[in-house]
Amino acid sequence: MKNLISMRDLSKQEILHLMEVAAKIEAGDIVPEMKRKVAALLFFEPSTRTMFSFDTAMKRMNGQTIIMSGTQNTSAKKGESFADTLQTIAQYSDIIIMRSPVEGSARLASEIVDVPVVNAGDGANQHPTQALLDLYSIIKTQGKLENLKIGLAGDLRFGRTVHSLAQAIAKFGAEFKFISPKFLQMPQYIKDDLSEQNIKFQEFVEMDGNIDDLDILYVTRIQKERFADPEDYEKVKGSYILEKSMLSNVKDNLKVLHPLPRVDEISTDVDDTEYAYYFPQAKNGVYTREAIIHILLGGE
């Protein structure tokens, strides 16, 4: 693995290897040493959480970070080309971690520079480290990735996270329940991809009553702005809020995941239940990102 740009580039074997390394790092069986190594965090679009997670990962390994965040710092305004900016940053750093609203920019970056590039999100396209930390959270709580029953709820149309996760876990065989308002359903091209792989899925418009047979319930936020009429939003939003009362008949091993930040789609009374896993999931992100950086910089 030279770069991490897209989940589409990863084989099942590479994914499992990465999970294994993340687990070893978490357990302290691998202690990566990044002294004198510098990671450049180029965030052409702000994302505090993802940036902190990478920053933490690098620092836990005794590495350093240089950070460019927001659009005001980009050289674009000075007329420097994207290629020149990257070439220059590559002289200072051992690895480039990049987020941008422009789709395909991480792939292009990886073709320009010699140091490894990690895609930390490129518009609506890919966010592979999120998908990998989600997989890590799943394998850690379920003991496997194969043949799980997975519910994806909320905005399934615009949610890059749920797209990547669905495609990634489909490689291991899975059964899906898609729970969303009609106009925020999973896009047809993802459903086609799944059908081609003989992956079963069903679609629902209500969370309540449709989660009892799940191993994983992955909740995402529905943004009010997606609705043309704010009243329509008020009408449906209740159907996609997870309440503690809905959890009375669920499976013991159910874990509720959420990419965070949460607004109100998971009621806070769920937090104390054994099913809530969204905060540990964020912590898993650090181990997963350590593993990614470790492997890309030549670790086993």
Binding site: S6, S81, E103, G104, S105, L108, D122, G123, N125
Partner: peptide
């Protein structure tokens, strides 16, 4: 950006996929 577009072609399904944005 000043990038040459690049597509992979699937002649069976008559579809192409962008090398960059993956659509």
């Amino acid at each position: 950006d000043e990038v040459t577009s690049k597509f992979k072609i699937d002649s069976i399904s008559k579809t192409v996929r962008c090398h960059y944005c993956e659509k």
